[in-house]
Design a protein around this nucleic acid. Structure first.
Lengths: 202, 202
DNA sequence: CGAGTCGTTGAACGGAATCAATCGTCGTGG
DNA sequence: CCACGACGATTGATTCCGTTCAACGACTCG
């Protein structure tokens, strides 16, 4: 299921530049000239866009080991903003170098395609999640989707507020629903993990 | 902006199988063994999934000339259902043949990557659209996004109900909002087209 | 120690979903 | 060929629930 890690994929590029980001630091914003694609070495970086009304939308959250902004490979400019959720370090791969590799190395291209198809699927999963109207159910499905299949637990990355935002909910209704899930006995929370106790929910 | 059409991309495959679909006919459903990837020759095919509650979610609408199910290339099974919105014909490319080409032909791989990155971006755009809470604004932005930049018009593919569904709205609220947009003078409708008269909307 | 922000809860509001009914059209079959 | 059924398009009334505004304690960081 898991596609080849990006850094391995691009190991042919010797010494990618490493950039450190403080919490909330912006790596690039929409409209900037797209020069690099990235992978998270440590920390978490989110991709977001702003709607005309000024609300921001989280499009993707890249954790340690994951790449991001690959879609910018064939675009002149970035179409979203990249902001570090926590203090992070990112590996920077110049676009033209990457393109060169893809041009010549069919094997690596295939891996890259696998990575992209994986991304398409997870975007579709997110879209599907957004179609669930009930906050209660949406959160529950999100947890099911992201929990470790073995122990039905998941570690919380970033704040609950971020999670609410990724789910397209206000933090208030998120808190309420998650509290309800806990009261029902459907989930159990500690400060950093959520454990699913029941696999269905009213 | 527009990536290479899929059929051209795969022209190396001689004589892809052509399949005809009647309106509402299902090409494949989630869980089926993924054997082919497709391109629409004529008509329109939509990809949808069903949430646990039984509601369906449109993930993608593929029009004439567009490919679909490319994400199944690296998956054993299909993760969604493909249904023809209108009577359609589709080109069927066997997965293993396509993989073979990608394996050996770096140039075509690059084109395929371009196609996928394009798809990632449009999925993100859809996700952004879904984050707009107001039905009024969501529809308006959708129209802006899909209208011909020259004449600010768009042809309606399928029914209004389908469009509502793609936007994640009930058809009732969709009709109401679109009627309001017309009354405001923001748009003008004929039976098969929508013309945008004003580029902003209250 | 204060500013800022997360986590949390309460109250009220608004707008989309839901239920329901009508009209027109398109196909289908007797 | 027409009657009938199915479904799209449309509008009305009502309900429901997520948003919004508001307030507060806890914690972190400078």
């Amino acid at each position: 299921m898991r596609s080849t890690p990006f850094d391995e994929l691009l190991s042919t590029i010797t010494k990618p530049e490493i950039k450190s980001l403080t919490k909330k630091e912006m790596l690039f914003q929409q409209g900037d000239l797209a020069t690099h694609i990235y992978a998270v070495k440590t920390g978490t970086v989110k991709l977001a866009r702003y709607t005309i009304e000024g609300c921001s939308v989280t499009l993707h959250t890249a954790n340690t080991g994951e790449s991001f902004a690959e879609a910018a490979l064939f675009s002149e400019i970035y179409h979203c903003n990249a902001v570090a959720i926590s203090a992070s370090t990112v590996l920077c791969y110049p676009k033209n170098k990457v393109l060169e590799i893809l041009q010549t190395n069919a094997e690596k291209s295939k891996d890259f395609i696998a990575l992209l198809t994986h991304q398409v699927r997870s975007l579709r999963a997110l879209l599907e999640l957004r179609s669930i109207r009930s906050a209660h159910q949406r959160i529950f499905q999100f947890l099911l989707l992201h929990a470790d299949p073995q122990n039905h637990e998941l570690k919380i990355k970033g704040t609950y507020k971020d999670m609410a935002h990724e789910l397209g909910l206000t933090h208030e209704s998120f808190y309420r629903s998650i509290a309800k899930l806990e009261n029902e006995g459907t989930i159990q929370r500690t400060s950093s993990t959520i454990k699913i106790k029941k696999l269905t929910s009213a």
